[in-house]
Structure formats: structure tokens, C-alpha cells
Design a protein around this nucleic acid. Structure first.
Lengths: 210, 210
DNA sequence: ACCTGAACACCGTTCAAGT
DNA sequence: ACCTGAACACCGTTCAAGT
């Protein structure tokens, strides 16, 4: 199934329809924040919008479309910084990127769909531009951009997953891993308190941006 | 819902049951390879095993359990290399890790569940051990391990997603991005031919392991 | 153009019952 | 201990019909 971004938006020249892609997207993000991915149902989403579930299909082709829209919406909240020094710019962007995904833990798991939304693309482009200001080009530029992007994605995904599970589960997981391989737990391989994770993430950036 | 790995396996002291966690896992991986995540249905899985769908619930608590088992099974295929020089060891492991996820593109998207399976843990532990042989310890060791692990996860996720989509969709995506932000496409931000991606991934490793 | 209502073909999961 | 069968409460999506 092709992604939303590759298909033209339906004509909309009438006035005051009850629904719009925008309103659907916002409602979807709300539901996802509250209930998680499995909680987002076309019927529940419709109910939240005061409409029949089937009405959504005039604005959107599938449930996956809704998820694509929601993910891109979250990326829209990542601030694109004023340009200063290139390292600082790249750092700020990537930091905001990670923050956004931690604020909406369901989003990280959905990156397993092509990220072609306008907000995602704009952020990626900014990142690449910052790195090119740092003197990188051609192959080096590609490598660096992907390295950074993949690092945030991976970090956000694992951290978001960890935090999305209940405290009880986290405790159980810790005991499980302690029993299975003690060296891992001793070195804090499992995510710990937030401040700690933030620190570790930043040190990773240091290595990359050295 | 707590993950499979945190709950005891049901007693099994009778002889010759038709089903086992092992057989279920293998069948699940087969189905996932053939049909993707949405194609894995408890009913279809049961049919593939010549059994009623409800029979699965004696061996497994939920469909998510099946997914956890399948992911860990895939990790079992990642070779743990003989120990030689630490950099080479880390590289070999991570390379195999990426390969495994590219061979089973559905797996990458499922990492949004705590990775606590025995096979995953063993690989992570090997990676950390290799890095510690390289002289890293404490905070530095944690940072490096997570950096590497998150890089593979991110890279595998984006690449697997890209390859899982049809050739037509990829072409459409390329045109879409070309129109939206030409600089990105010129620099091969979108994944290209396989050899190219392999190369780019390895250069990223160079940076990290420098 | 935009939304409703009824309907189709599925789901995951529970539970009593069989062997 | 392990599996079947019937049943429940949902799903996503289609499509004719309304306005």
C-alpha cells in the first residue's frame, strides 16, 4: 500500500465540512497518546470526532494513512533551530527529534513505515545542511547524515519502548536480565533514570560529532 | 502486558504433543517472512500447524508472545564470532545483526517491544564484552554499547522499511522527495542499491569504532 | 461534496467440553 | 496435559443511499 504522501489529497472546495485531515490527525494523536497504537481504532477515532467510522474514509484511504499523518504531525513539533555553529545546530535538531519521540512513545515504533511526510523531510534536510556547513560532502555527508539519523531513531525506539512498559514490568525485566547476564545489568545496559539516559545519549553524539 | 520472557513456561512432561513453542515459533517466522506482520493471524498460524487457533493459547498467552518469540528466533541466526581482535569482533557481530534484520524485514519494526529474549541478550553481551576488551569501561562502555546497538537498530529499521515497499512505491517516493527537497535526493539520502547501503553502513561503523 | 447505515469478512481471546 | 468447538466482542473496509 503506497503511503499517504504519494497520493493527491481529495478535492475540498465546499465549505465547513465537519472533518478534515488536520482535525483527524489531531484527534488521532490524542488517542494515541492516551491509549497507544492498539487503542487507535477507526471507530473510536470517529467517536472522538462525533462522526461515523465510515465517514473517515472520505478523507483517508486506510487506517495506516492515519498513522502516517500522526507520525508526521509529531515531527512537526520538533523545533528547527536558528542557524548558528553547525555542530550546535545538528545537536539541537537531533535532541529535539529524540524528545518528540519520547513524548509520544507510540511514534517510535511506527517509524517502520517510509518517512515521507513534509515535517520529517524538512528536519532531515536541515540536518544534512548543517553537516554540509561543517565541510562534509558527497559520500561523507551521506554517511554522517544517516549515522546521526539512525542513531536517534534507534535510541528513541529503545528508550520509548522501555518507558512505555509499566514499572512492575521494568522491575521484572531487570531481575530477568540480572539472572541471565549480570555483566549487562551492572553496566546499565537497561535504560535507567531519565537524566542518565539523556547524558548517555549526549555522549553518543559527542562521539559522532567529534 | 508483560513480555513472554518474564513468565514461566507451562509444564510439559507429557509425551508427543502436537505443538511446542519451538514449532509455533518456526511456523510464525515462516508466515511472517511470507506475509508480513499483518499476515500473521492466530487462525492462519494454527492452520499452518494443522491445529485449531484456540490450541495455540495453551502454549502462548497472546499473539504478542508469538511476535516476541519470532523476533528472538531471528536473532538466534546472528553468528557469534570467534574472539579475535576486539574491533573486528564488534564489527562482525553488528554486521550479522543488520543482516538478520534485513533478511526478515518485519523484525525491525517489532523491536518496539522490550528485547529480553535469550538470543538477543547473548548478542548484546558479546558486543559489550568486545568493547570492554578494547579498553572501555564504566560510562564509556555503556555509551559505546548503546551507540553501536542503536545505530544498527536504526539503520536496519529504515533500510528494511525501504526494501519492504514495492518497486513502484519506491519510485513514487523518489519522485515525491525529488520534488519536495532536491538536495536530499541528490545526496542519496534515500536508500539506493544494496551494495551502496552496505558501504554506507560500514563507513558509519568506521566513525564509531575510530 | 460529504456523511450515514447496513453489511461483509475477518479478527484475538475465553471457556466449557472432550480425550 | 493438550486440543476442539462454539461463542463474544470486537475489528477495517465497502458501498449504496441520503443530503
Amino acid at each position: 500500500m503506497t503511503s499517504v504522501w504519494l497520493r493527491p489529497e481529495p478535492d475540498r472546495r465546499r465549505r465547513q465540512p465537519q472533518l478534515s485531515r488536520e482535525s483527524i490527525t489531531v484527534a488521532a494523536v490524542g488517542l494515541l497518546d492516551a491509549e497507544g497504537v492498539d487503542g487507535l481504532t477507526m471507530r473510536r477515532l470517529a467517536a472522538a470526532l462525533g462522526v461515523t467510522s465510515t465517514a473517515l474514509y472520505w478523507h483517508v484511504e486506510t487506517r495506516d494513512d492515519v498513522l502516517d499523518l500522526a507520525v508526521d504531525h509529531v515531527f512537526g513539533a520538533v523545533p528547527i533551530p536558528e542557524k548558528t555553529e553547525w555542530r550546535a545546530d545538528a545537536r539541537t535538531l537531533v535532541r529535539g527529534w529524540r524528545r518528540a519521540m519520547l513524548d509520544h512513545p507510540w511514534a517510535a515504533a511506527l517509524i517502520g513505515r517510509p518517512m515521507l511526510g513534509p515535517n520529517v523531510l524538512a528536519r532531515t534536510e536541515f540536518l544534512q545542511e548543517a553537516l554540509s556547513r561543517g565541510g562534509l560532502k558527497d559520500r561523507e555527508l551521506t554517511v554522517a547524515t544517516r549515522l546521526l539519523a539512525n542513531y536517534v531513531i534507534g535510541a528513541a525506539l529503545t528508550e520509548a519502548t522501555w518507558r512505555a512498559s509499566s514499572a512492575a514490568d521494568r522491575e521484572a525485566a531487570r531481575r530477568h536480565v540480572t539472572a541471565a547476564c549480570p555483566t549487562l545489568v551492572a553496566s546499565r545496559h537497561l535504560a535507567g533514570p531519565e537524566r542518565d539516559d539523556d547524558e548517555i545519549f549526549e555522549r553518543g553524539l559527542d562521539v559522532i560529532l567529534r
